[in-house]
Amino acid sequence: MVITGASSGVGLAAAVRFAAQGDQVVVVGRTTERLDAAVARVRAAGGGREPGRFQADFERLAQVRDLAAYLLDTYPVIDVLANNAGGMVGGYRRTVDGYEATIQGNHLAPFLLTTLLRERLTGGRVVNTASRVHTQGRPDPDDFTGDPEKFRWGRAYGAAKSANILFAAEAARRWPDITSVSFHPGVVRTNFGEGAVRLVYRFAPFLTTPEKAGALLVWLATTPAAELTDGGYYVGHKLTRPAAHAGDREAATALWDASAAAVGV
């Protein structure tokens, strides 16, 4: 089980649950201190079994390629890839690769990782953490850089989460030998986003616990494939129709082709 964004929140909760079930887990995180702490928790949950670990910043595509190389060199089979890394960016930021940070961290980097691991995932599953916030924005396959003057963090995040849903649906069509789904984890109490956004996700009273959201991720990763809809978007345990722009087949195809060109695969 490879889980990105596993050093806190939903990803860590899922990693702990997988380890407690006896699964071999690879914990992927961005910062050393949080990754160390996460690995210790996953190790304890697994009764002392050492998890895999890798540090990677998804705002650097070179590090995503390094992660893929490590996984390919180390694991002959990958049963589950949980594309959970990402988050809200409070202001416009362009990555070293030349793309707006929200769309790169939440979509382009996971797209690259999944594509590089594609053959190793045969017969397995890809679970993409999306959001109901996808209703607030749509990705532009002709422009992953964006305009700093027009940047709005909510719209950018909504576009990235729409991209997650579109990617899962298109992957199901192109890769029928891999089960691919996306899901809304709830509004989770976690260290999420930046600045004022992070405060909301830590202290608002209506939030879902990481453990509940992590359990949903594990359910999607382990439920028999015949009981899921390949390419589907789930809210809780229920298959749900996304907003029209996130369910558009032509948009999914255009996004896939543009993403492949952008990341060079």
Results as ranks from 00 to 15, higher is better:
S7R: 00
G9V: 01
G9T: 10
V10Q: 09
V10L: 15
G11R: 05
A13I: 11
A13S: 15
V16K: 15
R17V: 10
F18P: 06
F18T: 05
A20N: 13
Q24P: 12
V27C: 03
T31G: 11
T31A: 11
A37M: 05
A38W: 01
A38K: 00
V42P: 01
G46T: 03
G48D: 04
R49Q: 13
E50K: 09
P51G: 06
G52P: 01
R53G: 08
F54V: 00
Q55E: 14
A56F: 09
D57A: 13
R60V: 12
R60P: 07
Q63C: 05
Q63Y: 08
R65P: 00
R65V: 02
L67Q: 09
A68L: 10
A69I: 08
L71G: 03
L72P: 05
L72M: 10
L72W: 07
T74P: 13
P76M: 04
D79N: 07
D79W: 03
V80L: 10
A82V: 15
A82R: 00
N84M: 05
M88P: 06
V89Q: 12
G91C: 09
R93Y: 10
D97N: 06
E100Q: 13
A101I: 08
T102F: 08
T102E: 06
L113Y: 04
T115S: 14
R118Y: 07
R118W: 13
G123V: 04
V126W: 00
V127S: 07
H134I: 06
R138K: 14
R138T: 15
D140G: 03
G146Y: 01
E149F: 11
F151W: 12
R152Y: 09
W153S: 09
G154V: 10
R155A: 11
R155Y: 04
A156V: 10
A156P: 04
Y157T: 03
A159V: 00
A159P: 01
K161T: 07
K161P: 13
S162F: 03
A168Q: 06
E170W: 04
A171Y: 15
A172V: 03
R174G: 01
D177V: 13
I178F: 12
F183L: 15
F183T: 04
P185E: 03
P185N: 05
G193K: 02
G195T: 08
G195D: 15
G195K: 06
G195E: 14
A196G: 10
L199E: 14
V200M: 12
A204W: 12
F206H: 12
T209Q: 12
E211Y: 04
E211R: 10
K212T: 14
A213H: 05
A215L: 11
V218L: 14
L220S: 06
T222C: 09
T222G: 06
P224N: 01
P224R: 05
A225H: 11
A226T: 11
E227R: 14
L228E: 04
Y234C: 03
V235R: 13
T240C: 11
T240I: 08
R241G: 09
D248M: 05
R249L: 14
E250N: 12
A254Y: 00
W256F: 13
D257V: 05
A260F: 08
A260G: 13
A261M: 07
A262L: 09
V263D: 11
